[in-house]
Design a protein around this nucleic acid. Structure first.
Lengths: 127, 127
DNA sequence: ATCGTGCTTTACGTTGACGTAAAGGTCAAC
DNA sequence: GTTGACCTTTACGTCAACGTAAAGCACGAT
């Protein structure tokens, strides 16, 4: 059925720079649902995509529960009109959050640049 | 000495949308050091500035300990050359972090827009 | 067949970031 | 002079996000 390359838990953990414990923790919270061959976990490309989304969400400071609602949104069935309208509403909320983060990062970078110039000025005055 | 408007802990907590417990917690970690009149805390403009920096750092997902090193950086004495060069090095590290957050937010927003277009397409197909 | 490697579950421990009483000081107002 | 509003410290509780054993299965290699 779902073919293509696969990975073990150790491989994707290594590749994404996290521990296997972290990956399983995300599974406990329902953020990833890898295939099983017997008892072993088998990860496909879509699992890697989701893990990438999760870690980016974490870097942006979102809690895992909120991240789950977001990644679930992308995989939601969205067949009926009501479902689509709900999803579009959620998108707007998330965008507002993300735009705030974007402004925060831009503001912080501007202040950092400004501060660096002051420091370089001070340094120059010292000869 | 340091004149100008002042605030109580309840006032700045209210204004910044956090609890007084949160503000005192930041003080415990050395992130803010309000003046004292007797036992009461008196907050000045610089405390408000720092609190603003702290909360923005939090929104961006930085841990409080790291935030402390950053805000301390801005108030550091930076008189000697060695100190200035250390500060400039720290600035570069922080900038790399912030630029990553900026890219994360931009990428996420792009994907969100793309996803929204797909949803609107689906909605249109439904009549 | 047993040894090592890599995986598994179960479960208690830890750290960060506060929440939440409990018990009390101060001061203006009634 | 006592009530009430607002502040204080001290200290235990909580929740998220994992860390860290402990104990055991599976399987290829020696």
């Amino acid at each position: 059925m779902t073919s293509g390359p696969t990975w073990t838990i150790a491989q994707i953990a290594e590749e994404f720079g996290v521990t296997h414990r972290t990956v399983r923790h995300y599974e406990d919270l329902g953020l990833i649902s890898p295939e099983r061959q017997g008892t072993r976990r088998i990860y496909h490309r879509r699992d890697r995509t989701r893990l990438g989304l999760i870690l980016r969400g974490k870097r942006l400071g979102f809690p895992l529960e909120e991240i789950r609602t977001i990644v679930d949104l992308f995989d939601a069935p969205r067949g009926r009109r009501a479902q689509l309208e709900y999803v579009l509403g959620q998108i707007d909320e998330r965008r507002a959050d993300l735009e705030q983060r974007l402004r925060d990062a831009q503001d912080a970078l501007r202040e950092l640049d400004q501060f660096e110039r002051r420091c370089r000025d001070d340094l120059e005055k010292l000869g």
